[in-house]
Design a protein around this nucleic acid. Sequence first.
DNA 1: TCAGATAGGTACCGATCGGTATCATCTCCG
DNA 2: CGGAGATGATACCGATCGGTACCTATCTGA
Lengths: 204, 204
Amino acid sequence: MAERPTEAPPNVGDRRPSRAAERIRQSARDLFYREGIRAVGVEAIVAGAGVTKPSLYRAFPSKDELAAAYLRDWDAVFWERFEAGAALYPDDPRARLRFYLEGLAARATVDGYRGCGLTNAAVEYPEPGHPARRVAEEAKRALRRRLTEMASAMGASRPDALGDGLLLLIEGAFATGQIFGTGGPARALVAAADALIDTYLGEA
Amino acid sequence: MAERPTEAPPNVGDRRPSRAAERIRQSARDLFYREGIRAVGVEAIVAGAGVTKPSLYRAFPSKDELAAAYLRDWDAVFWERFEAGAALYPDDPRARLRFYLEGLAARATVDGYRGCGLTNAAVEYPEPGHPARRVAEEAKRALRRRLTEMASAMGASRPDALGDGLLLLIEGAFATGQIFGTGGPARALVAAADALIDTYLGEA
DNA sequence: TCAGATAGGTACCGATCGGTATCATCTCCG
DNA sequence: CGGAGATGATACCGATCGGTACCTATCTGA
């Protein structure tokens, strides 16, 4: 693949910010997510980007750091999706969360879904200090904090417990979504979250 | 490693069934689970088993098939754990499930936990036909069926929905258990499952 | 006792891994 | 125009990957 390496800049309108690095990021993002980080070689990444290896290693110090950059990109779009309901329901944290969960349930119950890039990376890299794992762990800690915060805003009796329960459901959707195809267990996600929230809001 | 390869059969009482193959299975089990399947080379496996590569390839046609065998072993011990409460609570499916969930919550909230080998393998191998993925998918389908069956036995109004919700929680514990260390979200597992079950049992 | 199957070990295979040295080219700015 | 810094391409590195050909030791049953 990578038919004609040299001529024909892919997007003529690109400006300063190093188009090669950006193309590498995008190629890495697609391949890492689709096939897994360990399964993808740098050769495949640069081929997908239409560049060559030295271009990659000038923009990123190593494959591990490229993986970390991919996860930071992933994290950014995750939060975009997660907070997308904020504009629709500015004063209703429960509706906001529900909005995200509905979208997640839809995505996670069709064939080809591959789960959360961050969680997948943590599975692929159990070594504590790995750059990719570091990004994944920090992102998940932030999500946990945010969910507890939202549980608190909902008025839950024990926001920690509700936040953790919701995180279990979300991670369960990530995992089962890529194992079961269409019609997987994530179809029960919203109802389960509702039941959980109702229970924790109903407590004295 | 692999200090003295030849002498001293590991278990003197072993009969016919090829001790080398068994040592390879055990070494593969430890390494695959601890570090991930893709991260472990066959060299490390045979070194851990104190044998050499041809012994591995006489017992297993390929690394992929060895991974599949590892997952079948994993599946067997999983069911052992999952059904361990059957003896204690022969006529109480809810208590039986709770027993398993309590054990899982305990395991998943200590440092070094690595989640479910089957789920991890599905993350590492997204290709539909892969031997390891096949085993993982089939095992998870069986778990889903079993949970729905138990939900039905509990008298749930919609056993499918309850079973799926419980599966989300369990998979969430597998995932978060290996991301957060001690004190992770799985500490809320039992309470969340209770809330879910109560809700689905309380429905008309 | 001896044939033959079977298990184990040594040494090796081509392919691919992540990563780099070196040289050509392009672009912007004085 | 001219030259400097960034960008890209070719070709290559040692290490490791999964997998195998070949020889030896051992244990079995006739």
